[in-house]
Nucleic acid binder design. Structure first.
Lengths: 217, 217
DNA sequence: GCACTTATCTGAACGGTGTCAAGATAATCT
DNA sequence: AGATTATCTTGACACCGTTCAGATAAGTGC
């Protein structure tokens, strides 16, 4: 019998052999369903169907439905970290670093509402922050660095920790509230959703507060 | 046949006649299940079972599972409003009104985590704030009044609206983040969860910001 | 080349879920 | 009283997560 050709061995019904990389395909299928059909339609069976595979197949790659969802969420956290990193790099003025991180965070959540909700839920189930958020090189770590750059004493661990958590809370709160259509008129008045987000985050005053504190000293 | 006696007419198996007030019983059963078994166990059938009734009975009182859940959520919003009202009444110093509202909001969410999540989800599904939150006499209305009491110009509608939304976002963010066990050591360090909550809310600086602004003028 | 082991996928099944239509039962109205 | 209406039950449907016995293909040692 012939070796694998360029299209890989085909089964009699046109599907590739075992599947190639099913776990990857399942995560992608999950995101597609989440975006297009909403979180209620995100069933294990639907994901398997979308990937062209039997309902039991996912169990060879994920322990649970929960486990698959956690994988989708993990991908989301990585993308969020990347978005934050990019925003921080783009902010030329150090004093705006924190602001830009906040805006990037909320914008990501607003552009992927169902995914963001999934990410948070998945973190909630384990009663702990996701690993990606705790990592120094992303999430919490970046907020901390931005706070130091803005004048928080790096040696005052408690203050630094509180400020970091506060910033994170603010971003999460705005991210989840900004979707209510109750706010649409105000968004228009301010010239768009991004301006709205920036205005709310400014009101939360993490940035303003620390700048002012530094000037006081 | 005899009239209804004090125990009300009993069916042959000891259950009261039609049921009395099933829709109320269903909401209560829903909350019981939510508290004791978690949100995953909150199925229509389980609620019906807990209320001692067939799986189809709820459909004579609620259009949907969603509709029942919305009723549970509505009760939650009412209790949250009551908690906020009480906290504001207790704060003798006007300048602490906003702070106390925030703490009361977050404490309610922390004491009824599953219910609070349900409340938010249910609001999300309709893409709009719940009626109870929009009401002048509770929720948003109270925050607005507290902001005015603290020095925000009541005629600057945009500013007032932004500040109100910002306060709400802060409370929601802290409410949902405060549960991560990542923060437990810091909570202990600060002398308990309430102190932790207060510290984060202070960092978010709604209260501090406006007081300072007023002093500047 | 071959047998053997291992990873991957299918098929059928179980109990649980939301929902609906048809029928039973009890309260209410006239 | 009889008729109407509100309420609840039974039984069914399709879908869900999960498991398990078997099919299939990939990799491994000879």
């Amino acid at each position: 019998m012939a070796h694998a050709d360029l299209t890989r061995d085909l089964a009699h019904d046109g599907r590739p052999y075992h599947h190639g990389d099913l776990s990857r395909a399942l995560v992608l299928a999950g995101r597609r369903i989440l975006e297009k059909e909403g979180p209620a339609a995100l069933s294990l069976r639907a994901v398997a169907r979308e990937a062209g595979v039997s309902p039991a197949a996912p169990y060879h790659h994920f322990k649970d439905k929960c486990d698959l969802i956690a994988a989708v969420a993990a991908e989301g956290w990585q993308e969020l970290s990347a978005a934050i990193l990019e925003a921080r790099a783009k902010a030329k003025d150090v004093r705006h670093g924190l602001s830009e991180i906040g805006v990037a965070y909320v914008c990501f959540a607003r552009q992927n509402p169902a995914l963001y909700r999934l990410m948070y839920d998945s973190a909630c189930d384990r009663e702990d922050m996701p690993e990606h958020a705790k990592d120094e090189s992303s999430g919490f770590g970046q907020v901390k660095q931005a706070l130091i750059a803005v004048g928080v004493d790096p040696d005052d661990h408690r203050e630094l920790r509180l400020a970091t958590i506060a910033a994170w809370c603010a971003a999460h709160g705005v991210a989840e509230m900004a979707g209510f259509k109750e706010f649409e008129s105000l968004k228009e008045e301010l010239g768009g959703e991004v301006q709205f987000i920036r205005a709310i985050l400014d009101h939360l005053g993490i940035y303003a507060r620390h700048v002012r504190t530094r000037h006081d000293a």
